[in-house]
Each structure stands twice: as structure tokens, then as C-alpha cells.
């Protein structure tokens, strides 16, 4: 697939906002930390929402996307996201256990919806695994916890250390989950071949023409077109920045706001690489029909 920056930004920004909300709710933070945290979580979710609009050909019709919640995970996400944002706002204004718990449920539901958008497509084998949802959730929580630690170091230093410790634990789990999915996807065998694509039972089939000399939607949307080195670089970037580098910074200064903020930014950069790679790695079976231009 060709990674769309709108979707890469949306899933990573919203994930961080969701993680931040869960961290502050779980710690039962209050006062300035809670208000600032909810404001930042809303800003992250809002920025993600804004980014997601750039994915649409007709953003002015986006309201229609709430219609098919019975069958479409995308539609479910479109409903849960604004509901969660409203709950984040409400919890920031009048914190309460019931309201916060409701927000947490919406938060987890949003992780599930976002993950299922990808995991529900049977022939994108790289995504068709529970690890997709687990990783979206854990990676979002990890970056949210790092953000919470940075924020706490600034506004409520007593909470900085527990947040930092939680960020390390959840970050390590997220890292393991991501490595597990990398290992799984490296061993995948594509179910579809050129033989099943055109229905000719022969092991040696090669495309001569794809029906157009220029590119088409099919060549632009489903191929990232980057050299192998770029994809490999993205994988090494995610392996270095999703956990090891921010963990080193957290360990170096578990109470220091600048170091924790740097850890969050570094981890977020790693998550951008992670999400880019998530899309670039997925091989759509339609690509079998677009192997060579002429």
C-alpha cells in the first residue's frame, strides 16, 4: 500500500491522545495536570481528526460516514471518535469516576475501531491479525504515557516517576508486540498468485501489459514506489525510536520535563515511521495485476 500521510498522522496523533487520556484517568490525576492533559489530548485528537479529513475526496460529506455503523468499522470509528472527544472535554471540565470510566470505554472502543478498519480486510494478510489492534492500542498507550510523564514532570512532579515507569513497561510491551507482528509478517506467504489472479494454472506467468501506458489509480494507491532501502530505513527507525531511544531518555531523567518531552517527540517520530511501515509493508493482492507497465 502507499502510505497516506493523512492516515499515518491521524492514527498516531489520536493514539497518543487516547493514551494520554487513559494515563491521566488511570492515575486519577486532578487539578492543573488534568486540565492541561485533557486540553492536550483534545488537541491531539483534533489534529488527528483534521488530518483524517485530508484523506477524503469530499470532506464536506463526511457526516454521511456515520450511516453504516452496522457493517463498517470505519463508520463505527467516525461515531466513536467525536463521542470520545466530547467525553474528554467533559472529563476535563468536571472530573468524575463514572464520566471518566465512560471515556475510558470509548477510548478503548476507538482503539478497536481503528485497528479493525485494517484487521477486518481478509486479503491484506499483513493486517489480518489481532496484533494489529493490540499494537495500535499498546503503541498509543505508550506514547500517551510518555506524554503524561513529561506533563507531570512540569505540573505535578510527584506523578512524573510513576508515569515514566508505566511508560517504560507499556512501551516494552508495545515494542514486543510490534516485533511479533514484524516476525509474523516476514513469514507470510501470499494466498493469491498470478495463477489464481487470472486463473491459468501455470507456475510461470509474467505480465506484458497492464492496460495503460501511464499510471493509474491502481498503481498510485497500492504501491509506495520507494526503493527497498527506504523501507528498510523505516523499519530500523521504528525499531530504534519506538522504544529503545525514548526509554534511554526516560531512564536518564525520569523527573526531568525537557528529557521526557524529548522522549515523547522521539517516540512520536518512531511511531510515524512505524505507521508508515505498517502501510508500506502490506501487499495488496490487486498488485498482481499491476506488475509491469508494458
Amino acid at each position: 500500500m502507499n502510505p497516506a500521510w493523512s492516515v499515518v498522522l491521524f492514527t498516531t496523533l489520536a493514539g497518543a491522545g487516547q493514551g494520554l487520556y487513559l494515563a491521566l484517568f488511570a492515575a486519577q490525576a486532578g487539578g492543573r495536570l488534568l486540565q492541561a492533559g485533557m486540553a492536550i489530548a483534545l488537541a491531539l485528537l483534533g489534529a488527528g481528526l483534521l488530518a483524517s479529513f485530508f484523506h477524503l475526496g469530499h470532506p464536506e460529506r463526511a457526516w454521511r460516514a456515520a450511516a453504516m455503523w452496522r457493517t463498517s468499522w470505519l463508520s463505527r470509528e467516525v461515531i466513536v471518535l467525536p463521542a470520545f472527544m466530547a467525553l474528554v472535554l467533559a472529563y476535563g471540565l468536571m472530573p468524575g469516576m463514572a464520566l471518566g470510566a465512560l471515556g475510558a470505554v470509548a477510548c478503548v472502543a476507538l482503539f478497536v475501531c481503528t485497528g479493525m478498519i485494517y484487521a477486518c480486510l481478509p486479503f491484506l494478510q499483513e493486517w489480518r491479525t489481532p496484533l494489529t489492534i493490540v499494537n495500535f492500542t499498546l503503541l498509543g498507550c505508550a506514547s500517551g504515557l510518555t506524554a503524561a510523564a513529561a506533563l507531570a514532570a512540569w505540573l505535578e512532579p510527584a506523578l512524573a516517576r510513576p508515569f515514566a515507569q508505566a511508560a517504560l513497561v507499556v512501551g516494552a510491551l508495545a515494542y514486543l508486540g510490534r516485533i511479533a507482528s514484524l516476525a509474523r509478517n516476514a513469514r507470510l506467504r501470499p494466498k493469491s498468485t498470478l495463477a489464481t489472479a487470472i486463473g491459468v494454472k501455470h507456475p510461470r506467468i509474467r505480465q506484458i501489459a497492464q492496460g495503460a501506458m501511464g499510471g493509474s489509480f491502481n498503481t498510485r494507491e497500492f504501491f509506495h514506489g520507494r526503493p527497498r532501502e527506504v523501507v528498510r530505513a523505516a523499519r530500523w527507525t521504528l525499531l530504534a525510536l519506538v522504544f529503545p531511544a525514548p526509554a534511554a531518555l526516560v531512564l536518564a531523567g525520569p523527573g526531568s520535563a525537557p528529557l521526557l518531552a524529548a522522549a515523547f517527540l522521539l517516540q512520536y517520530a518512531g511511531l510515524l515511521a512505524e505507521r508508515w511501515y505498517f502501510f508500506a509493508e502490506a501487499k495488496h493482492p490487486q498488485n498482481l495485476y499491476y506488475q509491469s507497465i508494458a
Binding site: V200, Q207, I208, A209, G211
Partner: peptide, 9 residues
């Protein structure tokens, strides 16, 4: 679209 494939060697 009409595509063309070569089968065999």
C-alpha cells in the same frame, strides 16, 4: 482494462 500476460517460458 485489457491486460496481457505471457504464460510459460
Amino acid at each position: 482494462r485489457v491486460q496481457t500476460f505471457e504464460v510459460g517460458e
